[in-house]
Nucleic acid binder design. Structure first.
Lengths: 242, 242
DNA sequence: GACTTTTAAATGTCAGACAAATGAAAATTG
DNA sequence: CAATTTTCATTTGTCTGACATTTAAAAGTC
């Protein structure tokens, strides 16, 4: 392991890249232990602090984990789905908030992706998924719920819909889309009447899923998409006036 | 800004979290400058090295960028789509390779997501998108193409299909799915005959898109999904025997 | 006024030290 | 001998202080 000593500064970034490549290419396998910080600093011919900064970078990407003590060190981390979810959600959320993505665009993407799940979810949904969805729909119908709680329940409902497809890759991909939009949804004030409409659509989706009617699920999702969009537009229009 | 001095070690992780929260919540705005490392070390009451490790973590997530010099420092980074793509692809690729996701699962997810784009792409595709897709299909038909080059062209083709939906959020979400599966696809040996079938399906998709026939796009994508899956299964079956 | 030089501030890197955790080996004890 | 305790070496986490490098602004010069 060597690095180009002539290339521009930021040795820790180069070292991080070098190790990252070794992991991605499979040179370093899951749970394999990296050399100790002291050894790495000798191999790369840099100070220990520089190695440490490189390792922190890798740790931030969940590529390695570290453990203290005699048998400790840095280990290649097996990226789990929950970890990947987390990164996906953070990245998506920031992307939306920092790039002024319009509500319409985010909404369109979200429901398009969910429609993609419909056929699979209709085929594979279990009683558990249906129970979760109905419970969330029921919660959403309760008066006195804050807008935040309503949105959180909405996320849980749609999460169950996606998980019903029983494809972890799909769940992972959609976690970002569904959860990242929550902050945008939280900006909407849901009137009692609009909540009623949404809950009704949610119930229809649950019914369609129970009947394994994929087409109906898709249609209802489209309706939900339009309705959410209208709602958002009227809210933003009202806000601009004031 | 203070941190809990009693909580378990890993001060740099706590500091990173503290700053990350400030960014995500909007307390720190895009392009805003963070205090200098020395100032931060005073504020958090830790050494400069610890602050630096925290900053490296944030840098690895593209949350901040640093600049040297008199007016330099750490700035809140505006997460761009290309940066987000990159992270998304790295994460997805690792997730698939480290969790032994079956080809069938990844394939199913990929085509389900692409089908989600079909209606939008059919509506919004431009002549440019069509030209790209036809050019890639033409390249795929040329003999003497390596399997890797064929797969790369396949990715480019599908990328154009997704981009035709003209929704950056959707493009971002799907970049991971489509590109992360490429290493798995590269494991397949494409015979002349199987290439012919795939190219034919690609042409059909381009035709359907030109005719703005979303239903046809979806149907053909489903065929492509089944065919790819069959192909993979026969390849893996043959490999197991030997 | 335009150009050059100096300077101050910031990150990047290094070296050396000590603290704290941790598992394994060694010593002790019943 | 077996079980427990102690010691110990290793490794990461943190701190301190120093110097190098980069950069833009300030000061000086023609």
């Amino acid at each position: 392991m060597k690095i180009d000593p002539d290339s521009p500064a930021d040795l820790s970034a180069q070292i991080a890249k070098s190790i990252r490549d070794a992991i991605v290419s499979g040179d370093l396998r899951v749970d394999e232990r990296l050399p100790s910080e002291t050894e790495l600093s000798e191999q790369f011919d840099v100070s220990r602090s520089t190695v440490r900064e490189a390792l922190k970078r890798l740790g931030a990407q969940s590529l390695i984990r570290t453990q203290r003590g005699a048998t400790g060190g840095a280990f290649v981390n097996k990226l789990t789905y929950p970890e990947a979810y987390g990164q996906q959600i953070t990245t998506s959320t920031l992307l939306l908030s920092m790039n002024a993505v319009s509500f319409a665009t985010a909404c369109e993407a979200r429901y398009a992706l969910e429609r993609a799940c419909a056929p699979l979810s209709a085929e594979r949904r279990t009683a558990d998924h249906l129970a979760t969805m109905r419970a969330e729909a029921h919660r959403q119908a309760q008066p006195g719920l804050t807008d935040e709680a309503f949105c959180a329940s909405d996320v849980a409902f749609h999460r169950a819909l996606v998980d019903a497809a029983d494809n972890p890759v799909l769940s992972y991909q959609l976690a970002g889309a569904v959860e990242a939009i929550e902050p945008l949804m939280n900006m909407i004030t849901f009137s009692a009447r609009s909540r009623e409409t949404i809950v009704s659509l949610h119930s229809t989706i649950a019914d369609a899923l129970e009947a394994r009617d994929a087409q109906m699920v898709e249609t209802t999702l489209s309706e939900l998409a339009s309705y959410t969009n209208e709602l958002a537009q009227s809210v933003f229009a009202a806000r601009q006036k004031s």
